[in-house]
Amino acid sequence: PEPLTASMLAAAPLMDQKQLLGERLYPMIHALHPNLAGKITGMLLEIDNSELLHMLESPESLHSKVDEAIAVLQAHQVKECS
């Protein structure tokens, strides 16, 4: 599919914008963490759309965000267990 552009996003209603971004991010995150892809994508979708668009363009910023999400999840799970 053609790359998602800011103008395409702006044309979509807000709820669809998150779904659109999610469906682009999901496969990229799935390649990194298959079992946590849905959860991580959900966490990243709370970031504002402009940063999400940037992450779609630059894999390294996506990777660092995904690592951050993993760390936050693990810290959260540890807290829940203890």
Binding site: G38, M43, E68, A75
Partner: peptide, 21 residues
């Protein structure tokens, strides 16, 4: 800086089965 990511964010459900390329 405090991470702004929310561990309680609800899971994203891809509408179509977003197969990784």
């Amino acid at each position: 800086r405090k991470s702004t990511l929310n561990p309680n964010a609800n899971e994203f459900k891809p509408r179509f089965n977003a197969q990784p390329k």
